[in-house]
Amino acid sequence: MLRYEGKTVIELDVNGEKRTVTVRPSDILLDVLRDQLGLTGAKPGCRNGDCGACTVIMDGLPAKSCLVLAVEAVGRSILTVEGLDAGSPIQGAFVAKSAFQCGYCTSGFLMVCHAMLSKYPKPEEHVLEEWLQSNICRCTSYQEIRDAVKSIIQQ
C-alpha cells in the first residue's frame, strides 16, 4: 500500500497534461487544483460534499473535488472546466438558455452535464434529474439548466 507522509511530490493527470504538485496527505484535490495549478474554475461552496460547485470529472465520472484527497487522484484522469475549453456544446447551451446568473455554480453544473452526456447522450428526464441533483444553484430557477441540457439532446 502507498503511504504519504509530510509533503510529497505527486503527479496528476489534469486536462490531458501531466502536472507535478507538492501535497500533504490531507490536501484536497480542490485546493491543489486551485492553489497550485491555478485552475480556479472548480469552486469551494461548502467543502463538505453538499453543493457540487467543486465538481470535476475523474475517469469519466463527476467527482466532488472537495471530497477527494489529492493523493487519491494519482493515476486518474482529471478533467476540469478549463479542459472543456469551449469544446463541449453544453457551454454554448448554458449561454443560450440563461442557465447561470452569478456563475459561481456553473463550472460544477457544466462538469456534471458533460459527464452525463458522455455516458447518456439522450438522457431521460429522470436520469437528468438524478445526475443534476448533486448540485445547487441559488440564482437560476433550474428550469434554465434543464432547458440547456434538453436543447443539446434534441440536436
Binding site: 486551485r34 492553489d35 491555478g38 485552475l39 480556479t40 474554475g41 472548480a42 469552486k43 469551494p44 476540469t80 472546466v81 478549463e82 472543456l84 475549453d85 469551449a86 457551454q91 454554448g92 448554458f94 449561454v95 443560450a96 440563461s98 447561470f100 456563475g103 459561481y104 456553473t106 463550472s107 457544466l110
Partner: peptide, 22 residues
C-alpha cells in the same frame, strides 16, 4: 442578448475574490 460576461462564466475563467492568486 446574452449576458456580457457569459463566456467568462461558462469557461470557468471568471475570477471571484477567492480565485485571485495568493
Amino acid at each position: 442578448i446574452p449576458r456580457k460576461e457569459s463566456w467568462a462564466k461558462v469557461s470557468g475563467r471568471a475570477k471571484y475574490t477567492g480565485d485571485l492568486p495568493a
